[in-house]
Amino acid sequence: MIAKKQKLLGIAMVLPSFLSLIILVVWPVFISIKQSFQNEENQFTWDNYKYVLTDPMMVNNFKYTMLVTLISCVLVLIISYALAAYLRFSNSWFSKVISRLYFIPMFIPGIIAIYGFINMYRDNGWIARFIGSENMPSFVYDIKGLVLMNLWFNIPFTTMLLLSALSAIPGSVIESARDVGAKKLTIFFKFILPLSYNTLLVALTFAFMGIVGSFTAPYLIDKNAPQMLGVSMQQHFSVYHELGQSSSIAVILFLMCAVVGFIYIKNMMKNESHS
């Protein structure tokens, strides 16, 4: 009886998220895929994909999106890893302060952060007032600004993930390695990196998916062309009213994320079968 009740409770707890997933995600995805193969008369066509994959403007947008995403992901991982390693292995008061402060950006609403960023970095913004606007490189309406903004959005969460992975490495492993005379670099490459490799992959997946489909930051900070795919998709949808074309951009974006997701899942399964 109790077991049955618990079972029902379990289902009742899962049901809201399951239903909302079906209604809010699966169904719209299905409609988008269908729409991406339709022309204005709702007939089957490949034209949307032909346009999205061959039009010079769209090809540039794809290249640009990949460029921004790769640069941002690499920088996010390097900076976050360094930060997480510092927080894990240093016991100074400074590291303690930082460990309490580093996730603050997660609690600042995105749009407010972006406008703050613009005021800080624009050509006659706060920084320009200190260093003189002639010494100020252009950040706003430039790829540099967009990458910086992506760092702001992604470093805290990535650091959190990596820090939990590094914290899980027992101190005894490192100490015993040190006792038998392993150098710092050897310890890092033989122990720390392999033991945190999986989490690194998880962090990369999250950062990639967040950045590749981002809209608000590139919309407000980036220049007009080439565009990130999120911005281009919105433009095709609500400015040009090209439902089919915007749907096909969405599907391709989805496939890009699916590839990364697949690599991640495959790796996870490989590791599970090993252990």
Binding site: M160, L161, S164, S167, A168
Partner: peptide
């Protein structure tokens, strides 16, 4: 930290 994350 891991525990923290879980709680989060």
């Amino acid at each position: 930290m891991l525990k923290n994350l879980k709680q989060h």
